[in-house]
Design a protein around this nucleic acid. Structure first.
Lengths: 353, 353
DNA sequence: AGAAATATGATGGACGTCAATCATTTTCTG
DNA sequence: CAGAAAATGATTGACGTCCATCATATTTCT
């Protein structure tokens, strides 16, 4: 009926409870012969340790930290909010969550923050990463202490983390391109792209994916060289203004990076005959612009899904379990019709009615 | 440091552990005065019952059942697979899962199956529902026995279930329309729609949403009256064949219901100049057709997300907790570029590398 | 006031695991 | 073959809750 206990396993293996316990907890001082007997009994009886009982016994608390870029970036605010929400519920399952902020895009700052974790005694850390070998050493140090590290949203050097939770940005760019291409219905066109910085790996990857698809499947479209924006709304606004004023043959805009509020305000100033507009990340202003018909498409990476996944993966890593089946992460396409409920305006609606 | 225990609460309230226990478990025979003292202490100390310990103590097993239409429908196979996968991991948290199959679309069959649950002693049931007052009585009966019921994918009469987990089909239809509309880039067109049956509520809702958006925002497009298909691939194939042969001015196809394999094989037979094609549900053949460029868009309801949500909601209901923060459910748009990994071909890739 | 009803306190055995101790047995080594 | 080292068995007290029992207080009613 109910699951076998370690007592059952010990009995089946013909050893004492103590020995079985020594085996499954790797306490050492046990003969290979006994190890084999216990292992065999475990698989035969299909024993799985009762995590609830185990955690209860050892008063285990999962200490999990998130390391997230500082600042008022709407996207990371959304991430923070969701972490906080999930954490509130997870405290009942004895996982404690801390969020640390680190100055954005600074390798040194990130490196220092990671190094700080050495003292802090966490079980697992999710880090919005950067690609730089400067951070490899502190990461290796965390691993040496048994702290599980995963990359979130933006990956870490892959040999220095257990997993990456985030979308594939090449795929995101390809998706944007597919949609933009389709929206031309076989006609000709030119697409103006914007990037924050080509040094930012995610931006470069998106652009790369975008170009791939347009080149392969939409030969009548041209991808114009990207305008550099530093993710600064005012630059985006100015550049978009200029573009709309000079009556070009641009048929679509694709902003690879952030700073959408600038783009949006430029567009809403001249609503007539605007080009097809695709941006990334669903936040308050992109959502609002979608509803108002100022932009056409938002490619979103579903930070809520990412956070849930991050927690699940970290807990599995800490417990040395397999990761449970979870929704996959895929760039999500939003138009004005399939927007999720706005959590700020309709908190906790939860489909119950 | 760690959370307060019931002992702490009792002490803080100035009563014995037994009394505190009587209060929080509503065992009765306790003076109002004591109830108040305990309640006050609970909020003051921010006590939350340690669910792990509680479940351990009472050897609690969450018994959860799913009631799903029988048959080889690819979509429900996907649902079944995901339930099985999740269940495998949940058994470690002492939830047992049973899947029952019921003859599809039969109100009587569904009603009987629901009635059968009376004997079966479940804590919660997720049902792929129908709208019919025939099933109200057996549902009311389940509720009377304290069994939590939620609607899955297709709703139940709303007063007889605790929650609905599924997409809004009007939204799904609107989304399909938005995408189809955009793909015409302002040009003229006519859209041929297909439905399984207009009595099926989800089909009717999708069509309704579709028409709404086309009428409101794409005046140059016409929505042709739907062809009835009974979700039968062979009918879809024949009708699509006929359509493609007679050189009409149809610029897009939208299949509201199932039976896509028929539509796809008709299209792949005449690949030249096919219309824009939108279908529902990502399954093996629609996925393959998307990759092969035989169709353009799949609107998916993410059954994996739904299942995860269903489990979370049921457990919360059973424990009388709040539902934890989870990803929202929204019709998802797939093009060939943003497809999730195919679990059949690349099992458990899990983004770890 | 006394009996009956109701409230409270005290306690202890589950639940399954962890972590420790101590005694005993087996195996190895010289 | 003795002595040391290694392996095993047996047992026990947490962890926090549930649930039951029994004894004692306190209130309520007549």
């Amino acid at each position: 009926m109910s699951n076998p206990t370690l007592h059952d396993v010990a009995q089946a293996a013909g050893v004492s409870y103590a020995t079985a316990d020594r085996v499954i907890n790797n306490r050492g001082n046990v003969a290979q012969k006994s190890i084999d007997k216990v292992r065999e009994a475990v698989t035969r009886l299909d024993y799985v340790r009762n995590v609830a009982a185990a955690n209860l016994s050892r008063k285990r608390v999962y200490r999990i930290a998130f390391l997230i870029p500082k600042g008022t970036n709407a996207f990371f605010n959304r991430i923070r909010d969701h972490i906080t929400q999930v954490a509130a519920h997870l405290s009942a399952e004895s996982v404690s969550v801390d969020i640390y902020e680190v100055s954005a895009f600074s390798v040194e700052g990130l490196s220092d923050s990671i190094a700080d974790f050495r003292q802090k005694d966490f079980d697992g850390v999710a880090i919005v990463g950067l690609q730089s070998n400067v951070i490899e050493e502190p990461l290796a140090d965390l691993r040496a202490r048994g702290i599980k590290v995963i990359g979130l949203v933006s990956d870490l050097p892959r040999d220095f983390r257990e997993a990456y939770i985030g979308i594939d940005n090449v795929v995101a760019g390809r998706t944007a391109a597919r949609m933009t291409g389709m929206a031309h219905a076989g006609g000709r066109g030119a697409i103006q792209t914007f990037v924050g910085s080509l040094d930012a790996r995610d931006h470069a990857e998106r652009l790369e994916g975008f170009r791939e698809v347009i080149a392969a499947d939409f030969p009548k479209l041209t991808v114009l060289d990207p305008i550099l924006t530093k993710d600064d709304p005012s630059i985006l606004q100015a550049e978009t203004d200029r573009l709309l004023a000079q009556q070009t043959d641009v048929t679509a805009l694709y902003n690879v990076g952030a700073g959408n509020s600038g783009l949006i305000s430029a567009i809403s100033a001249k609503p007539a005959q605007r080009p097809y507009c695709v941006v990334h990340e669903l936040v308050a202003h992109s959502r609002q612009a979608l509803i108002a018909g100022q932009i056409d498409l938002v490619i979103d990476q579903r930070p809520d899904v990412e956070i849930n996944r991050a927690f699940a993966v970290l807990r599995a890593l800490i417990d040395q379990r397999e990761t449970p089946a979870m929704p996959e992460l895929t760039p999500t396409i939003y138009v004005r019709d399939n927007l999720p409920a706005d959590p700020l305006n309709e908190p906790m609606k939860d489909q119950n009615t």
